[in-house]
């Protein structure tokens, strides 16, 4: 008898709390400290505020930590959120958790990085491979065939890193088949980029350009040039992300091209889609948030567009 009452109270409490969280969207970000991710997170927060939903934002304890991401994923499911927007640190590692959520009727929107091995409600991202091809093709126009260049990679155990590297290399090699591409491997760490670029630039004086998989690498490569006493333009820099500091470095003559993802849009569209899906609306399975090729001539237009002052 007493037991029944207790269960009743708990059930009522659960009902109440679930009604409190009726309009909550879980948002699992990849990083809260990377400048690019901060723009995505801002977009996500703005979209949630606009739609009047409660956004539960959680991030991994350090960038690239799959186990903590899986844990927060399960916690969010247990809390009873209506939809989850997730930026997977590992495309296939997250798949079982995504499958569980989808099976229990919770919409899952993947942001920035796709999920392999499980279906998601929608995938909101720049097509990294396609944008990297644009980056590679444009970078090729900045050097002559036969010139040596450096490419600073992202983490090669992640699809984002692989796609950017493959896209860049393919497009660049097509246009400049006799050029040598030296690689500096990193795990999205600008200190690794700086050290690697510094080592190669110091050992070889025939390098004409440093292309980067993300703008943290671009800033690391710029620091490497400064450390070796090189000036802006001695070695061309090409970035990826359109981060504020890289665009500023472009105006100072260091960076010569940058393929910008519409980072803010990615977060904004991602949460919008998650909200729509949680309300039972039909959403597109693939939303391409586009990109912007920033060059010294288009830098101002880009700054106006994304609101860099």
């Amino acid at each position: 008898m007493k037991m029944n009452k207790l269960i009743g109270v708990i059930a009522a409490g659960a009902l109440l709390s679930s009604s409190v969280y009726a309009d909550s969207i879980g948002y699992i970000t990849k990083s809260a400290t990377n400048s690019g991710w901060m723009m995505i997170n801002q977009g996500a927060a703005d979209a949630a505020a606009e739609a009047g939903v409660d956004l539960v934002t959680v991030g991994p304890t350090f960038q690239g930590d799959l186990s903590s991401q899986l844990e927060v994923f399960e916690n969010l499911l247990a809390q009873g959120v209506n939809a989850i927007a997730v930026a997977p640190v590992d495309s296939s590692g997250i798949a079982p958790a995504v499958q569980d959520a989808m099976d229990s009727g919770v919409a899952v929107v993947a942001i920035d990085t796709g999920v392999t091995g499980a279906k998601v409600t929608s995938f909101v991202a720049t097509d990294n491979y396609a944008v990297a091809k644009v980056q590679g093709a444009y970078a090729a126009t900045l050097v002559n065939d036969g010139d040596t260049i450096i490419y600073v990679t992202g983490n090669q155990a992640q699809s984002t890193g692989q796609e950017r590297r493959n896209g860049f290399t393919e497009a660049f090699k097509t246009a400049r088949p006799n050029s040598e591409i030296l690689e500096v491997p990193t795990e999205w760490n600008s200190a690794q980029a700086q050290e690697g670029v510094e080592a190669i630039l110091n050992a070889r004086d025939d390098v004409k350009m440093v292309a980067n998989a993300w703008d943290g690498g671009t800033m690391g490569a710029k620091a490497a040039m400064e450390n070796l006493g090189l000036s802006a333009g001695d070695v061309l820099l090409v970035g990826f992300d359109g981060a504020t500091d890289a665009v500023e470095a472009m105006e100072a003559g260091w960076v010569h091209a940058d393929t910008a993802q519409m980072l803010y849009q990615m977060g904004y569209q991602g949460i919008k889609t998650a909200v729509a899906a949680s309300q039972g609306k039909e959403v597109s399975a693939r939303i391409d948030t586009g990109f912007f090729l920033v060059t010294p001539t288009t830098a101002q237009a880009y700054k106006d567009l994304v609101g860099i002052k």
Partner: peptide
């Protein structure tokens, strides 16, 4: 030697 200061 770094480009800027940052907490990470």
């Amino acid at each position: 030697r770094a480009p800027y200061a940052k907490s990470d």
